[in-house]
Amino acid sequence: MYGFNFKMNMHYHSKYRINPEMKMIHLLEENHLLLLMLQHFEIDFRVGDSTIAQLCKEYDISENLFIRIANLYSGVRVANNTSFSKKDVLRVINFLKNSHTYYRSDKYPQIRNFIFQLKQNHPDKELKLLEQFFDEYFAEVLEHLNYEDTIAFPYFIALLENKENTAASTNYSSDEYSEHHTDIELKLKDLKSLLLKHLKINDDWMLRRQLLFALYELEYDLYIHSLIEETILIPAGIGIENE
């Protein structure tokens, strides 16, 4: 009831709270999508018997940050009262960059490939349009990711390393970042609606299921991604600007 209802229950406190003495392998049994988190943190999947505390030490990540993000992945949104060190925020930026790589070079191309195959198998006009829809969408996503990589993240890094000059000398600010934050999730929902409610495609179960699984996996990670930006990165940026 609690695992996959994460979106519905994000304000509902889960039955267990992650603590540093828990073994990572047990958390993965509960929610295998935490593998995405490990990848974005650059933690090897072969976690062995390590506890969270041991992993954090080995990979030089603060337990505070690790647990906050692990909680987000498990659908627990803990009250936003802990503050993060500059090192933590730099780590978050690296995490977000790695997730960009996952979107750009892994998930979106995979989805594109599924849609392409589907179009090959079913030469209907709708699927040709679906491919076109996806390509335009993918182009928008790439533009947004590039914007974050080349403008937003460098701004935050400069802010962390040398706060006096950056906030004063650029016109950019954390506020603007949150405004620019486009809703990439919207068209993804459109895609899902088209496949689940409207487009009539016969058979091809395996391909359609693979496509839907990929869309759900992407949607899940994008959702956590924006939560991390909104609840960790932007508040930290505003905090430094106001100092």
């Binding site: 829809f133 335009e136 929902k189 609606s193 409207h198």
Partner: peptide
């Protein structure tokens, strides 16, 4: 429809 974008609605 569960669709918001113009291009999505076109396919619909």
């Amino acid at each position: 429809t569960g669709i918001r974008s113009q291009s999505g609605l076109t396919i619909y």
